[in-house]
Design a protein around this nucleic acid. Structure first.
Length: 221
DNA sequence: GCCCAGGTGGGTA
DNA sequence: TACCCACATGGG
């Protein structure tokens, strides 16, 4: 499995080049981005982050104090803005109550404790937690998103209804626990997914993974 | 006008 | 456990 996953990685890297992913001036900004990007393209998140920055709300203390309505107006481009305003507030309040706004002390926990803490926050699910661990805490926790699932499924590596934990474990048990590798792999899967697996019908012609794929040409499983 | 994006939580059987 | 639904903008 290790060989297979590395082969996929190498082909994607050769095709798309390094993605140098997840821009963010600070770990806190990365976390805000991780919450805002739930089910939405990053381009929309950038607008919201810029608006929060402009209103000087991009720090844990200030976000925790701001009314949900004020946050919601600023993050409108991000879809489900009322929900996400609550989620940002929930995380900020958690950070204030449990860590006195000391983000570093939260992020310095070991992966399993950090993951447990993050999952206890309303609005943070497995994918968002892993994105925060990988991109904000810079610790090796593989992120399984829609594209990861779809692509690995089409390659015949996972079952259609594989659970999140099963997919994550499979990858993490097969690959070395390496932050740059996990970072780049996730970014490449999203890039590839956007270009070729956006809809139910994959674009198989000229696909760098076509010879590894069990899906027949042009037909969705 | 229609489809779908880098999900999560809550409700129901 | 396994579904189903709400959330509700913007770009192709």
């Amino acid at each position: 499995m290790r060989k297979r996953l590395l082969e996929i990685y190498q082909r994607l890297l050769d095709t798309y080049g390094a993605q140098s992913w997840w821009p963010g001036e600070s770990p806190f900004e990365v976390i805000v981005g991780a919450i805002l990007t739930q089910s939405v393209a990053w381009s929309n998140v950038e607008k919201a982050i810029a608006a929060l920055q402009q209103s000087d709300l991009l720090t844990p203390g200030k976000l925790a104090q701001a009314p949900i309505e004020e946050i919601a107006v600023l993050i409108r481009p991000c879809l489900y803005y009322n929900e996400k305003a609550k989620k940002l507030k929930a995380f900020s309040s958690f950070l204030e109550d449990r860590y006195s706004n000391n983000l570093s002390s939260l992020l310095s926990l070991d992966i399993s404790c950090l993951r447990q803490e993050l999952l206890s926050v309303w609005g943070i699910g497995e994918e968002t937690a892993d994105a925060i661990i990988l991109y904000a805490a810079k610790k090796p926790s593989f992120v399984v998103d829609t594209y990861t699932r779809r692509i690995l499924q089409r390659l015949g590596i996972i079952e259609e209804k594989s659970a999140y934990a099963g997919i994550r474990n499979l990858v993490m048990e097969s690959l070395p626990a390496d932050v740059p590798l996990y970072n780049e792999y996730h970014a490449l899967l999203v890039r590839h997914g956007k270009e070729r697996c956006r809809s139910r019908r994959p674009v198989c012609k000229g696909c760098p993974l076509s010879t590894l794929c069990k899906v027949s040409d042009g037909v969705a499983p």
